[in-house]
């Protein structure tokens, strides 16, 4: 495969409306134009120093994470792949109690990709970084021939200083309560609706958002967080099951306490999905001592629009390794990890 390394940055050429393989030719004018797009949007002294590597001053225990973003469609209600690529990595840091500081950013762009779309994506990334104060300090761009990528793929990695120690999947304690930060399943539902093949219309938007601002408030309020995770792929079911297994505890949740919007529930009814299995990109689950729950909810509703933050259940020493969902009419069942592709039911 012909891959053209563009030496760390693309150059936008106003003569072109699409990214072309020739953009890798290294001509000065092109380099200058692309340079304008990335450096204008992401400007900071470490990035613009244009060294081979970024030089960072780190202190204390540091969290380090990476994630690659491929989404179809690239633009959806409530966000796009750029916003997702920033929020996703920032959230991975935030969920470890780490202040998101420095990010890397790699683009793999398919030949023919619209430059105006790239501009929209890059602008979204810059805007989303303002939510957490993180900076992109290094990057890379590749252009691949048409058909070798699906529009654009983005990888971001991030590092940040851990300012709240001890948050861990292994740290759930008996009688901890489980809090969900908002209504679940919005991102997964919004993406499904945006796909042409479903031909659905709705006001539903993705929950895609950086979670650092709310986490920062919780840490400042000195909330004793035992475990915290954003419920991305696999949704609420995956997080709770991972916790139950990692901490070897049981988790019991009440169906009627779990916030789900009518739009998400409607999509689930149509296609036979469960909201617990759908992805989120700005929704997190937290386990903490029962005594700290009220204060946590107060902080969440007061500062960060988490009006729907709710206690949905608790940790128990029964059913270790399993998650139990209690129905409003008194029966119970396992809430299992979703498996395989999400495929609609047949009838």
């Amino acid at each position: 495969m012909l891959i053209i390394d563009m030496l760390g940055y693309l150059m936008l050429n106003k003569k072109f409306e699409q990214i072309q393989l020739s953009h890798g030719g290294g001509g000065k004018e092109m380099n200058a134009l692309i340079n304008d797009m990335f450096f204008t949007a992401f400007a900071n002294p470490i990035l613009t120093s244009q060294e081979d590597s970024a030089q960072l001053q780190l202190s204390g225990t540091t969290a380090f994470t990476t994630d690659s973003f491929t989404v179809d469609p690239l633009f959806f209600a409530g966000g796009n792949i750029g916003k997702l690529a920033i929020a996703g990595t920032v959230n991975d840091l935030a969920m470890m109690g780490a202040l998101p500081e420095y990010l890397s950013c790699s683009f793999i762009i398919e030949e023919g990709f619209a430059i105006k779309d790239l501009q929209t994506i890059v602008t979204s990334m810059a805007e989303e970084m303002q939510q957490s104060g993180a900076h992109i300090v290094c990057g890379d761009t590749k252009v691949v021939p048409k058909g070798c990528a699906d529009g654009i793929f983005i990888n971001t990695s991030g590092v940040g200083k851990i300012i709240k120690q001890g948050i861990s999947v292994n740290n759930l304690q008996n009688d901890d309560v489980i809090i969900v930060s908002r209504d679940i399943g919005r991102h997964g539902a919004a993406i499904l609706m945006a796909r042409d093949s479903l031909s659905l219309e709705s006001d539903l938007t993705s929950d895609c958002a950086s979670l650092w601002p709310i986490v920062e408030q919780l840490i400042t309020a000195n909330i004793d967080i035992h475990a915290m995770r954003d419920a991305t792929r696999g949704g609420l079911s995956a997080v709770l099951n991972e916790w139950a297994m990692a901490s070897n505890v049981g988790i019991s949740v009440d169906e009627k306490l779990i916030p789900v919007s009518t739009e998400v529930q409607g999509l689930c009814e149509l296609y036979g999905f469960e909201p617990y299995d759908l992805a989120n990109e700005g929704t997190f689950i937290m386990a903490l001592p029962r005594a700290a729950a009220d204060k946590a909810l107060e902080v969440m509703t007061q500062y960060c629009h988490c009006d729907q933050a709710s206690i949905i259940g608790y940790v128990t020493d029964a059913h270790n390794g399993k998650v139990i969902l209690n129905t409003p009419w008194g029966s119970s069942r396992y809430l299992d990890i979703p498996q395989g592709e999400l495929l609609p039911r047949i009838c």
Partner: peptide
């Protein structure tokens, strides 16, 4: 295999 299959439904939900 299918979410409508008896074994799948038992595996996912039953046994509490």
């Amino acid at each position: 295999v299918s979410s409508e299959g008896a074994c799948n439904a038992y595996y996912r939900y039953a046994g509490v």
